[in-house]
Design a protein around this nucleic acid. Structure first.
Lengths: 111, 111
DNA sequence: TGACACCATGTCGGTTCTGACATATCGTAA
DNA sequence: TTACGATATGTCAGAACCGACATGGTGTCA
């Protein structure tokens, strides 16, 4: 666990360790946050690929620009449900969600 | 009310998946419900495999027996977050979650 | 410089989810 | 049958989340 990541998470409102270290987070808590971060990144990637503004995405899913911004930054006030619902609404299917959620990183997905 | 019935039907193999007009559900809503059903089934499978009671699972995740029961029946009051958090806590990793979430898995006939 | 489009952040009232409890149903062994 | 462990169902107060709005920041173009 690197320091950079910890700071990034703390900035987004995640309570990350106080007296104890960053490892005050249990393994599964970290996993859940990582999954949310991946979905957030996936959302931003898709939006960028389709050249949509946050406002347009918001209209498409019946939400607001500010909430889309929070989604993309994996704000602690954003649920897994909302992220998944949003990706589905934008055309991602189950397998797409699964592949975003799965193991870490970089996969030049067939789009 | 009607939602539970629908979920029960799906659980019994009604394959509502491609009938996006079953009860005015959009395709995305159906997908989300299907994903929750898969996670619910996964939870029950894991619990069964480890011979745990719902009460024991509840204690392990800091919840209650009734909520675990609702999770396993994919009750509409149960979030994706809770299901995923629970599976993680029981030892499933990211890839495990992803493979449960991906569409039509079904393999593994442990006796 | 101003004006504008886009994104980020804070807040808040209303809605949804959650743990806990009560209660009911089911399976099974005595 | 009764008793009991396991599971299901209903309810509710409090916590978490949501959409909406306000506001601030950044980049760009004339």
């Amino acid at each position: 666990m690197d320091e950079k990541k910890r700071e990034a998470l703390e900035e987004r409102g995640w309570k990350v360790g106080d007296t104890q270290e960053f490892l005050g987070l249990t393994e599964d808590e970290v996993s859940l946050i990582d999954m949310k971060l991946s979905l957030a990144e996936g959302l931003r990637t898709i939006r960028s690929k389709e050249s949509l503004t946050q406002e347009e995405v918001a209209n498409r899913i019946g939400s607001s620009q500010s909430r889309v911004a929070k989604m993309e930054s994996a704000d602690s006030s954003v649920s897994l449900d909302l992220l998944v619902r949003t990706l589905l609404r934008l055309g991602t299917d189950r397998d797409g969600i699964a592949s975003i959620l799965g193991s870490p990183r970089r996969q030049k997905a067939t789009v």
